[in-house]
């Protein structure tokens, strides 16, 4: 999808002039210092410093694992014309599990900006050298493979691991998932030896893999990434498990097409700026610009896949 950006940019730039980008109000469903917060502020700072917008403000509205911000955006839609809410894959999972009373269908998807892929990680001294080793071990003794993750059951890390096991032809219900309350603690769980595999975000794992602390067995990316060409995907190991944890922006319901296109244009222009490139470098993010109808189609597809998986795991009836 990345290759489409230049063409898209060209179109947007040609159609561009004449739009005065006033200000953007970023609605962040989590507290200061979290992942959503960092992305929204990173995007906002880059846009402001590049002069694409005049001003930006950030509203941290945590609560209900993101449900409060979503309801807020819907309830106060008539005064949120300048608002972009940041969200990510969990919005789909949590809506499916009815933790959120609403879903992305109730708001206006604008564009996804960055992506992280799932990573399956082992200690450097692990006997697992490739994904197949895990599959073999699990087939012999499912209770002997402890999989750590930084979120509760049926959340992203669990889902990524379950997807990998399911697509390897195993019974994902038998997966022994050990939940920690943060990715960092799950990493400690792996390194301390109490779990054998860690399911986490690739960007979190790369830093430690670079330092020789852990080995990444496989990612859920569709193909190998430019930044880490040595890390194999599950797909190429014969397991068609692809999962993209996107982070993107949504506008309030009732947002006009003109306004939505303007948001889209502003965001599309961001990738060219030096400011963005330095933010992205330091944070280890991967660009992932999918906007408009493509974004909606992408969301629908992910929702379908997640729904099927949750159903098979028994989290949905």
């Amino acid at each position: 999808m990345k290759c489409r950006i230049p063409a898209l940019l060209l179109v947007l730039v040609l159609a561009g002039p004449g739009f005065a980008a006033e200000r953007i109000h970023f609605l962040i469903p989590g507290g200061a210092g979290g992942g959503w917060d960092a992305t929204a502020r990173g995007v906002g700072e880059a846009l402001a410093r590049a002069g694409a917008i005049d001003a930006s403000s950030y509203e941290n509205l945590s609560g209900g694992g993101g449900a409060r911000a979503l309801s807020h955006l819907i309830e106060t839609a008539d005064r949120q014309q300048n608002t972009l809410m940041i969200s990510s894959s969990p919005i789909i999972l949590r809506s499916l599990r009815k933790i959120y009373p609403q879903s992305y269908h109730d708001i206006v998807p604008v564009a996804s900006v960055v992506v992280d892929y799932g990573a399956l990680v082992v200690r450097v001294d692990s006997l697992y050298l490739k994904w197949q080793d895990v599959v073999d071990d699990f087939s012999n003794n499912p209770r002997g493979v402890n999989v750590a993750g930084g979120s509760s059951r049926a959340s992203t890390d669990h889902i990524v691991a379950a997807l990998a096991f399911q697509k390897s032809g195993l019974d994902a219900r038998q997966l022994k998932y050990i939940p920690y309350n943060a990715g960092a603690h799950a990493m400690v769980g792996l390194l301390s030896g109490e779990t054998q595999i860690l399911s986490t975000g690739l960007s979190e794992a790369i830093a430690l893999a670079d330092q020789g602390e852990v080995r990444i067995l496989a990612t859920t990316a569709p193909e190998r990434l430019e930044r880490v060409p040595d890390i194999p995907t599950l797909t190429e190991q014969g397991v068609p498990a692809v999962f993209s944890n996107w982070r993107g922006f949504f506008a309030a319901p009732g947002t006009t097409d003109t306004q939505r296109l303007q948001f889209e244009r502003i965001l599309a222009g961001m990738y060219e700026t030096e400011e963005w490139q330095s933010v992205r470098e330091s944070r280890g993010w991967t660009d992932f610009f999918v906007a408009g109808d493509d974004f909606v189609a992408f969301l629908n597809q992910q929702e379908q896949e997640m729904s099927a998986l949750l159903q098979e795991l028994g989290f949905l009836n």
């Binding site: 210092g33 603690h185 830093a207 330091s282």
Partner: peptide, 28 residues
């Protein structure tokens, strides 16, 4: 020494270090 933040404070500290291009870990 490990690049692992054990608390909310060190997590946000890691963010600060990363934004200055310092990647903590055994290699540092």
């Amino acid at each position: 020494t490990l690049g692992i933040p054990g608390s909310a404070t060190t997590a946000v500290m890691l963010g600060a270090l990363l934004s200055y291009g310092v990647q903590p870990g055994p290699r540092l």
